[in-house]
Write a protein that binds this DNA or RNA. Structure first.
Length: 417
RNA sequence: GUGGCUGUAGCUCAGUUGGUUAGAGCAUUGGUUUGUGGUACCAAGGGUCGUCGGUUCAAAUCCGAUCAGCCACCCCA
């Protein structure tokens, strides 16, 4: 109730965490550029139909997890994921003239779910979309990029790549019928949740965590066996390409995606280190999406990764910068010291100000921020036009004239920062 | 939306069968050092015990509600 705490499921990213997020996003941005993806930034809210029409009217996200509000007579929704907005932008700007299109995005997403480990109501994703290529080459490239990204983050040892094919529409319809048939005879043994899923989204029963469900599903027909020849060939080709890149995915015939727009390739990078929220990066192919939204038939494939989940796995080893601390003693020295600090910063050094207190106090604070040097300017120094530069690692002090200060400091301390 | 566990200082946590002024460590601030950091020692500040209500002579402690957090289901990044 207290308005002094953040809304449930939202968090303040204090500098330490914000820094970690930025490290992850910066790495993503750098890497994605190397693969030829340009950034796209779509609004964080859209007309509600953008999501309800693309994600599937029966998906959980649409039925119960969207933050929807009315403004004037328009129904608007905070984006629960990134692909729908990208697809909308693709159509509004006629980007089918620019195929193949490779874009990346990052930013906050919103889902009204009960928060738990690795799950927030406002969370952040980075993701990519590759539109206009129906060859498995696109799938392979996008998955390889994902693996590369996780590798550079140093989390690959805790993560495994799972792969499945949902087949094309024909294969999926045939399988769905066979699955429902199999389950219908055993309906009474299914959990309440799964009996509900039987009507709307039977494939979801495949990855149920209920033990009774698992037993029933264990004997169910496999999606893989219902793939028609083209779908089968597509999957085989993808596996060959991934192998060529040194990737050996675990084929998981029970891997299902929640959103209706997926077909053929579905993949997840999962971990056991995050409790129940094992999916760290996931995606798939969505060949029918653009057309379904009213655009020209355009194949597409993409993935998204949860920044918070990556942050939980990623150990930030990048060293914090070591500042030089400028310590002016007295009002006159303050003016001179303030100006010197600016000179040093313009020269490219990371400079902190030792604002107030005794010299002892300020050096203590400088030590705590892991400073590499203190530049002390008091009455004596002012009179002589020299600053006392104290090296905080070895305690040595040298006088350096104000005139030379920036140049000398760069020479002495740039490497220590 | 459902279930389990938990809310005491900025952080991590003690607090006996209900009983005076609710404690510790870390952190912060000050001092030993009025121009010299790390170590050490001394001291100080900081709490309507999540909130509201109830039981009681007396509640951090027992009860109820509520809010929040964590974990799980569901779902997903």
């Amino acid at each position: 109730m207290s308005s002094l705490q953040p809304v449930r499921g939202t968090v303040d990213l204090l500098p330490e965490d914000a820094r970690k997020h930025r490290t992850i996003e910066a790495l993503f941005a750098r890497l994605v550029e190397r693969y030829g993806f340009g950034e796209i930034a779509t609004p964080i809210f859209e007309f509600t139909e953008v999501f309800s029409r693309t994600l599937g009217e029966t998906s959980d996200i649409v039925t119960k997890e969207m933050y929807t509000f009315t403004s004037g007579d328009e129904s608007l929704t905070l984006r629960p994921e990134g692909t729908a907005g990208v697809a909308r932008a693709f159509i509004t700007h006629g980007l089918h003239h620019a195929l193949p299109l490779k874009v990346s995005y990052r930013g906050p997403m919103f889902r009204h779910e009960r928060p738990q480990k690795g799950r927030l109501r406002q969370f952040h994703q980075v993701g990519v979309e590759l539109l206009g290529v129906d060859s498995p080459l696109a799938d392979a490239e996008v998955i390889t990029l994902a693996a590369h990204f996780l590798d550079e983050l140093g989390v690959t040892d805790t993560v495994t790549l799972e792969l499945n094919s949902l087949g094309d529409a024909e294969s999926r319809a045939a399988y769905r019928a066979a699955l429902v048939d199999h389950l219908a005879g055993r309906g009474n043994g299914l959990s309440d949740d799964s009996r509900r899923r039987l009507a709307g989204n039977p494939l979801r029963i495949l990855d149920s965590k209920d033990e009774g469900d698992r037993a029933i599903v264990a004997t169910a027909p496999l999606l893989t066996d219902f793939l028609n020849a083209p779908s089968r060939a597509f999957l085989d080709r993808l596996c060959t390409l991934l192998a060529a890149a040194g990737l050996s995915p675990v084929l998981n015939p029970r891997l299902v995606r929640g959103l209706d727009y997926y077909c053929h390739t579905a993949f997840e990078f999962t971990t056991t280190a995050l409790g129940a929220q094992g999916t760290v990066l996931a995606g798939g192919r969505y060949d029918g999406l653009i057309q379904q939204m009213g655009g020209p038939a355009t194949p597409g494939i993409g993935w998204a990764a949860g920044v918070e989940r990556l942050a939980l796995l990623h150990e930030d080893r990048t060293a914090l910068p070591r500042p030089v601390v400028l310590v002016p003693l007295g009002e006159a020295a303050e003016s001179a010291g303030f100006a010197l600090a600016q000179d040093l910063r313009k020269a490219g050094l990371h400079v902190e100000m030792g604002y107030a207190g005794t010299l002892s106090r300020r050096l203590k604070r400088a030590h705590k921020m892991n400073a590499c040097a203190a530049v002390i300017v008091g009455e004596n120094e002012l009179a002589q036009g020299k600053a006392v530069v104290r090296d905080l690692d070895d305690g040595t002090q040298t006088d350096i004239s104000f005139f030379d200060l920036a140049g000398q400091m760069i020479r002495l301390y740039r490497d220590k920062q």
